[in-house]
Design a binder for these strands. Structure first.
Lengths: 259, 259
DNA sequence: ACTAATTATGCATGTTTGTGCATGATGTGG
DNA sequence: CCACATCATGCACAAACATGCATAATTAGT
């Protein structure tokens, strides 16, 4: 025997995570063993709750475990498209700050797995998602966690953020308008965003169409405080031109994957 | 004898680290000894938490290969049963510290939604899950996030934890034995757990059966450092009695929901 | 330095575990 | 309803295993 049974089961789990499914017959060929052995492995793994046994192979346990805790909610495909564009701006081995927000959360999942850099964030859900990327060093900012934003807020958090000088920051904006500027819904959250605008080498925001040309109660600054804005593929050209005229870099995401 | 037993075990560990696995038969040939001796070595090392014994040889303790995210989906029903028992110990409106670990993560989901208290944690996935509970005030501890444990570690984190005096702490234990005491797999993680043991009014650990009567490389203290231990419904009575004889409160979780 | 106690090792024993094959049952798609 | 793939189960066999015991090596005590 050239491979230990436990190793084989571990590799089956890896394939399951990578490919999203495994076939009993294919595994038998890969490991040069009988299908019976593979079936026994799959039965065993399923019994330990590590996979879901189906006719012909097995599937990940997916429904409860992953989607419950790291759920980005709506418009994930459009947010993922923005995320891909954001990832393109990243310089390897630099410090990136990721602000809270569901857009950034969905964006993380579109990051390539071998992205090599340090990321700081005060959003626990974002941190949990970033852990899935093998080459990312993660710095978590603590503090009281606000239920409104799902991220740390308050004096302690602000002070910790102020101590950072990230080369690049992905700002989560609640509202963005060429004339009205950037705005947020939560005062504590706004404080942190202001600190990021002050201290970051380059600030980028990826905004969904519905956040364009709207306002929010707490102003953060003028639109051109952002070095770069990423719009959806079908964002109105008029808005894009307005940003460009104010000296901002305007990028467009690729169209979201058609189901 | 040309080689000391301790030397041999050390070299076995080196091979394990280099090759990712060791085979009992191969080791017997390398060290020119009987397989029995090798098996005894492997049993010993596994007992000290330095490797994982499998049929035919041994594997590393595997923090890398199985990410925290994967472990979270494992044995969720049993962990949920432990979580229900943990929830029963909570005093409303107090400060609870929740240590990192997949058991605590699954436990959170079994908490009632109207549980009213403040929870501190340095585990971002735990924090994200706690946000789902409407009446919980959440305090997040920051720092460098370790991929091994999926939670913040290091000096900054430790200092912040030291500043807290929680009435109750849910410790995530990697190994627990009546005689060997409590132990962890990660040195940085162990530091934080020690701080919790020092500073908490009451420390409770909920442990799966497979963590009982095993060891791990980094000792945290004697078993009776815990005020209370929660075992699974079908945990061996002998172990439960051994804990009780050391003056610990021993609770048993309800049997997990039959699938 | 000599003996006693402890520990490590090897061997023999019986037991457990993993594997492949045969058989019959169950599910899948036309 | 049929043909076929997939599956669960029982069985046989070999490899790996735990255990008890005898012996060799090491350590401790006086």
């Amino acid at each position: 025997m050239s491979i230990l049974a436990a190793e084989r089961q571990q590799q089956i789990l890896e394939r399951l995570g990578r490919d999203g499914r495994v076939l009993a017959a294919a595994l038998a060929e890969v490991f040069a063993t009988s299908e019976d052995t593979i079936r026994r492995d799959l039965r065993d793994l399923a019994g330990r709750g590590l996979c879901r046994r189906v006719y012909g192979g097995a599937l990940p346990i997916s429904p409860a475990s992953r989607s419950a805790q790291i759920r980005a909610g709506e418009a994930t495909d459009r947010k993922a498209a923005l995320g891909q564009a954001l990832a393109g701006l990243i310089t390897p081995d630099s410090l990136l700050y990721m602000d809270s927000g569901s857009t950034n959360l969905a964006a993380v999942k579109a990051f390539p797995d071998d992205l090599r850099l340090t990321v700081a964030t005060h959003d626990p859900a974002l941190a949990a998602a970033l852990l899935a990327k093998r080459e990312i060093t993660l710095w978590l900012i603590g503090g009281r966690v606000s239920r409104e934003t799902g991220a740390a807020v308050g004096g302690r958090t602000l002070a910790d953020v102020e101590a950072l000088r990230p080369e690049l920051a992905f700002l989560g904006v609640c509202a963005l308008d060429p004339l009205e500027g950037i705005a947020a819904f939560d005062p504590d959250d706004a404080e942190i965003k202001r600190a990021l605008l002050r201290n970051s080498g380059c600030v980028v925001a990826a905004v969904l169409n519905e956040k364009l040309e709207t306002g929010a109660p707490f102003a953060l600054g003028r639109a051109e405080s952002l070095d770069c804005v990423i719009l959806e593929a079908d964002a109105p050209e008029s808005v894009a031109r307005a940003f460009a005229e104010r000296g901002m870099n305007v990028l467009r995401a690729a169209p979201p994957e058609a189901g």
